[in-house]
Design a protein around this nucleic acid. Sequence first.
RNA 1: GACCCGGUAGCUCAGUCGGUAGAGCAUGCGGCUUUUAACCGCCAGGUCGUGGGUUCGAUUCCCACCCGGGUCACCA
Length: 500
Amino acid sequence: MSDELNYVLQARRDKIAALEALGVAPFAYGFDRRNVAAECVGLLGEAGEGPEVQLAGRVVAWRAHGKTTFAHLGDASGRVQLYLKKDVVGEASYELDLGDVIGVRGPLFRTRTGEVTVKVEHLELLAKSLRPLPFGKEEVVDGVVVRHSAFADGEQRSRQRYADLAVHPEVRALFTARSRMTAAVRGFMDGLGYLEVETPVLQPLYGGAAAKPFITHHNALDMPLYLRIADELYLKRLVIGGFDRVYEIGHDFRNEGIDRTHNPEFTMLEFYEAYADYTVMMARVEALLIAAATAVRDALAATGLATDAPAFDPAVLQGPFARMEWLPSLSSALRVADVTAMTDTELRTAAEHAGVHGLANLSRPKLMDELFQHHVESKIDRPTFVVDYPKELSPLAKPKRGNPALTERFELFAKGRELANAFSELNDPIDQRQRFEAQARLKAAGDEEASGVDEDYLRAMEYGMPPMGGVGVGIDRLFMYLTGTAHIRDVILFPTMRPE
RNA sequence: GACCCGGUAGCUCAGUCGGUAGAGCAUGCGGCUUUUAACCGCCAGGUCGUGGGUUCGAUUCCCACCCGGGUCACCA
């Protein structure tokens, strides 16, 4: 059915015409707001009648009783009940719809049932709602809000986030918590003397990760540009330039499938610190996670949301987090003395038992990685650092001092998922050139995820790159973890979706 | 990409073993000056995801496609 013919929409449009005939402007220019809903309870205190308040917000509940009406006004702070009398506010202002944006003025009082209420003496329509918001009905049973006929279609809630937010205060609270978390992350980095920088989103060459890029075209330069898949190579250029500690929080773009943990654009925190090795970065990540968890806990504590999530777990809020070494923990999980001593056949058999797919094409290191994911990673619940990865699995990390078969790399896992990935960064331009060339050969052979040789980056390295530690943290996934959110689309305001 | 589940009124859903569909809420009208899922009465509202097939007849059965969700694969 077309929207234009919809009887509900038509009724609202008819009301606008009626209002205009009565001299009421349906869309205002502003309002002198002097109070917010949440402060009304405190302003009234224990009294039966209280001071005059002046509030603006949306009509979120409406109970008309003839010439009198009880309604609720919702704003960013919460909601407060309104009491309207037709003979007081006037006929033109009395007939409102759920969803209308209004401004009201009047004294506070307490109703027979004890609820703090604004006795509305003056009412202004600020914006007429022409389309019904999908409000459900709410009741409170044993202190818990129960919704009836709620706006529950996850797809529509993501597509029309404005409507989702408008009718679900807890969704606003969740995204507020996300904002507090990134603010805390910035505060943490700034406090350590890190400089927040911005590097190009549009790049002539992409690199820093293995992923398929989005490709676009610049008309005036008549050349292809890629949306970045990582910030890494530009941030390291800045360390070469003398910014010892830099970080960036921004979007990376990867041209891959969409599922509950993948959105084509996502928020990444990367930070690089000169003269620090991976042990220093591990301490940074630990403190960062605690700062993020604390911010999320503080933001959600007052709302009662997700109180059983990791952000409320004392072990997450305090640290220190467990450490485990890659090879010994895998050996132990497989109940062998040394996993590297296993034959290929033994590894394959073990992988088969673990249910690994596509065994035939897997190299020995990949087999071990699959086994590690199945037997170790997936069983990690509380934040745990996994350290010292085999060299074959970590082409961007420096070899481990004293054991060149391993690298100085760690990942942080929790609830079976990766939260952070970090290395002592490679700073040898000759080695780096060889690795780029290997990538370029893969790319030439058709590997869409391989990158090319970044000559400009090599030139930067050749000037002399200080040793440094680097970390990447997926902000969406970190927030999902801390709040116990299952879908990435529920922590992204406007997730990527097919057009309707 | 494979398999499974779903798409019916503005919202949440039911239903039709094949005979062009119902409820609650919302909307409209009437009543109601302390209610809070307000209440009472009446009315209206749907090309049952799209296209094709079988059939006298398809929202229902079959096929294809679109959209969404789930599981798996992919995503160092």
